[in-house]
């Protein structure tokens, strides 16, 4: 697969806090999930890759363009769709007018062609029926889809999505996952999320970050495999477990180093994620 984004040594500090510390990664076509606890550096990494903020050190390219130069940054922005963590809108605009506004800022200047493109992306995010409705009258999920439409306008090849499913109810999240799956076809998508389910369902690659470092990079199956033989069931909470919680069935699900003869369970991506954080000392698993 073609490498779309290649980064090495990305470092960024805010005052005394190291937000990114020597981050290196490669992204290919398809959806890559970015997991990590709060303060892990996920949003900072996305903002650097989206050219919203420059790194203190390090380098990266997007589709061969180096954003270190003005021309390179412009070229990157022309290939980029960015959905920030807290997207903002002009609330009195209709969904159509807002996406049209973003399309103009993305240099789609021919009015007829631009309007066709705006209609296309609104249809792609299932908002064709409410395109004339003011944004302030749309639900949270619909607004999030307007923001996704704004990111998609101009058909970008590299899509950066910062927690797009945060704050959505389960049905909206399902619909959003469907959308992201569709929009991920033929594109490189970097998706930051707290939801391991999102990664399990959507992503062909996953990156785990903590403390400004990349702690894991691989496939969801490889992350899950990290917990193989390290998840077990017991009638009572196992004091030796790194984490344990009572399941709906009444038994305890324990994660960590199992005692001999333990009743091992099939691991999930979440188990692999928790153990990755714990193994690297990035964050103790909540007991």
């Amino acid at each position: 697969m073609t490498v779309t984004v290649s980064a090495s040594g990305l470092t960024l500090r805010y005052g005394g806090t190291v937000a990114l510390d020597d981050v290196a990664l490669r992204l290919e076509e398809g959806i890559t999930g970015l997991l990590g606890p709060n303060g892990a550096g996920k949003t900072t990494l996305l903002r650097v890759l989206a050219t919203a903020v420059p790194a203190d050190r390090g380098a990266f390219t997007v589709l061969g363009h180096d954003p270190g130069t003005a021309a390179g940054r412009l070229a990157v922005r022309r290939t980029l769709g960015y959905l920030p963590q807290n997207p903002g809108f002009h609330p009195d605009f209709t969904a159509f007018a807002f996406v049209d506004y973003v399309a103009i800022l993305k240099e789609l200047t021919d009015r007829a062609a631009r309007h066709r493109e705006v209609r296309r992306v609104l249809a792609e995010v299932d908002l064709a029926d409410v395109r004339g409705r003011r944004i302030k009258r749309l639900s949270g999920g619909m607004r999030q889809r307007v923001a996704l439409a704004a990111a998609l306008v101009g058909d970008p090849r590299f899509l950066v999505l910062d927690e797009p499913t945060a704050g959505l109810d389960p049905e909206q999240r399902m619909r959003f996952r469907e959308l992201i799956t569709r929009t991920g076809e033929g594109r490189t998508v970097l998706l930051s999320t707290h939801q391991t389910e999102d990664v399990a369902m959507l992503c062909h690659r996953v990156i785990v970050m903590a403390g400004g470092h990349v702690r894991f990079e691989g496939t969801p199956a490889e992350l899950t495999a990290r917990a193989a033989g390290r998840v077990w069931s017991s009638a009572e909470r196992d004091p030796g477990a790194r984490a344990g919680w009572r399941t709906g069935a009444g038994a305890f699900r324990n994660v960590g180093d199992p005692p001999e003869g333990a009743d091992l369970l099939e691991p999930t991506l979440e188990d692999g994620y928790l153990l990755t954080l714990d193994d690297t000392g990035a964050q103790a698993v909540t007991r």
Binding site: H90, A97, Y101, L105, E107, L108, T109
Partner: peptide, 27 residues
């Protein structure tokens, strides 16, 4: 990446008009 632009001075004028209209609306 789809970019719809019109070349030449007329194109630049159209781009500027579109941009000015967009900025006018968000003042």
């Amino acid at each position: 990446m789809l970019r719809v632009t019109v070349g030449g001075d007329a194109g630049r004028g159209a781009a500027l008009r579109a941009l000015a209209g967009a900025v006018w609306r968000v003042l």
